[in-house]
Design a protein around this nucleic acid. Sequence first.
DNA 1: CCTACCGATCGGTAGG
DNA 2: CCTACCGATCGGTAGG
Lengths: 208, 208
Amino acid sequence: MTDETLPSKADRSASAILDSAYALFSTQGYAATSMRQIAERAGLALGSIYNHYPSKEAIFEAVVNERHPFLLILPLILEGQGDTVDEFLRSAARSLVAGLGDHPEFLNLMLTEVVEFKGRHVQQLFEKFFPDILTLAGRLAGFQDELRPIPAPLILRAFVGMFFAYFITGMVLKNQMPLEMQANDLDLFLGIFLNGVKQPVGMTSESK
Amino acid sequence: MTDETLPSKADRSASAILDSAYALFSTQGYAATSMRQIAERAGLALGSIYNHYPSKEAIFEAVVNERHPFLLILPLILEGQGDTVDEFLRSAARSLVAGLGDHPEFLNLMLTEVVEFKGRHVQQLFEKFFPDILTLAGRLAGFQDELRPIPAPLILRAFVGMFFAYFITGMVLKNQMPLEMQANDLDLFLGIFLNGVKQPVGMTSESK
DNA sequence: CCTACCGATCGGTAGG
DNA sequence: CCTACCGATCGGTAGG
């Protein structure tokens, strides 16, 4: 009430709990993280957490809904500029990688959700993101004549999947990759993807 | 000792523990799985487990080394036949999907390892698989003139990554995918990948 | 918002 | 290979 734009103390505590839980869940997983750890990192006593969230699972749900990587990813993809698919997707990829800051642990939260909750919380997320997904699909449809005849949703899925593939194989290989690549291999991934979805130059419609 | 090819009772118990642990770890994650659950599913008392493995983490390590999805995957890829990259990779993909039986949970073990152990056990796995990886890279190098100039290891990584991308996005979307696709979308993924790595027909070496 | 507590369950062990 | 137990820690709550 002191200032209508300043969050209340209760709001700040609730947010601190989410930040703490996000950091812990995404580095340790759900079951391996205790309420005591969450409380300590948030600067609260254990009992105080329950003034903001009724249970551990409720905190996880709130983290998924308010700190999910996709909340970061989708706007970044929508930022993509360009008059050709090539430009559009490359710029989307650039802002994506920049925004995610080369911190592959960002998708640990989603992996945890998949393994420990079997994707149970994804439904509501999907509804939340649906308008943005439609926008993106429409944007891609605008480049239709540059693309091979692949459904726009699948191109989107493959595009997102490419980053999964890149980050996960990167996390697994990071420690023992000789030194060959490491930096420009995302460009190569992107090159494979772009060559994969684009119509070969010179032919407009009569492939297959 | 009754038959030199028959596993001893101790061996069978050890194997039952691994089977049990694999099933539980890959559906619940590591921390969410208790030693009591592992014992019960293996048909043993809790205390008996410790005659075969010294700790819970030792069981996880044994599971990773002896039940890891890659142990299934690599031979399947090596089975791939064909005189062109297209045939080779398509046949590899076919036997891969057939062998993994449309059960995407097969890679949960690896996801769990990445999230809960930060990929700590991958080093030894990598050494174990190194010869097969070399064989595969050599096989791909044989198709060099059909391929765009991309390092063979990265093509391999992208190929494996494509399945990660396909299965993970599939697990997440499965529940709410309208009904559009579901069956032939792997073909489309594969098509994107193949178009992405292959040299456009008609030009042999002078791209870029 | 904290202190102090609850019953349940955890990984692991002793002893037979 | 099992029974019975250990101390530690878990998610959650009462009471102030």
